[in-house]
């Protein structure tokens, strides 16, 4: 198997953490993974993105021009990465910040996640990133949801381990949204 994705948003949305968790989940399944944070001038101005590649075999490039999957957590990210998703690929959109009318792409699947509402349901709007990650994993099948949950332990600093349960709930809520549509 081979999977790649770009995860983008503004600083503070936790997109780097999403990438790390995804890579750890792949490792837990004995897959290879690379994680490449944006680097350079792009870091300024409050936007952030990272690229994660997962594969059974050796991974070539850790950077991807046209990803199979993109997760966009805000409108500037949609504008930048939406058009770059490969034909037949998947675009996961944070519907809480990106209006549906902006999401007009042909030949790819678009998944709108009302992440803020779902995060509030499980307790805290700051869990929106975990909701979206849970949804992406369920939709793409890149890793098992179980592995994703397990990945919280190595990915989160010990200080935040008390938050793991609520993060798991958020991931599950996102996944359930994909399966059940609500």
């Amino acid at each position: 198997m081979y999977f790649d994705c770009i995860i983008a948003g503004f600083g503070g949305q936790g997109v780097m953490l999403m990438g790390n968790i995804l890579a750890y989940a792949a490792m837990a399944e004995k897959k290879k993974a690379t994680y490449m944070p944006v680097y350079g001038v792009e870091m300024r101005g409050g936007t952030a993105n990272c690229t994660v590649v997962v594969s059974d075999g050796e991974i070539g490039s850790p950077i991807i021009q046209r990803p199979m999957t993109a997760i966009v957590m805000n409108l500037p990210s949609l504008e930048k990465f939406g058009p770059r998703v490969k034909k037949g690929g998947l675009l996961v959109v944070n519907a809480s910040l990106v209006p549906e009318k902006e999401v007009q792409f042909k030949g790819i699947k678009c998944l709108m996640i009302p992440s803020r509402d779902l995060a509030l349901e499980v307790g805290n709007e700051r869990l929106a990133n975990m909701v979206v990650l849970g949804a992406t994993v369920r939709k793409s099948g890149v890793v098992d949801l179980k592995s994703l949950k397990k990945a919280l332990y190595p990915a989160l600093d010990r200080r935040y381990h008390k938050m793991i349960d609520v993060n798991i709930k958020a991931m599950e809520r996102g996944a359930r949204f994909v399966t059940e549509g609500v």
């Binding site: 890579a23 944070p37 680097y39 991974i59 850790p62």
Partner: peptide
């Protein structure tokens, strides 16, 4: 370079 310094891998 930065690519090799900043990327993470197992």
């Amino acid at each position: 370079d930065a690519l090799l310094g900043q990327m993470k891998e197992p």
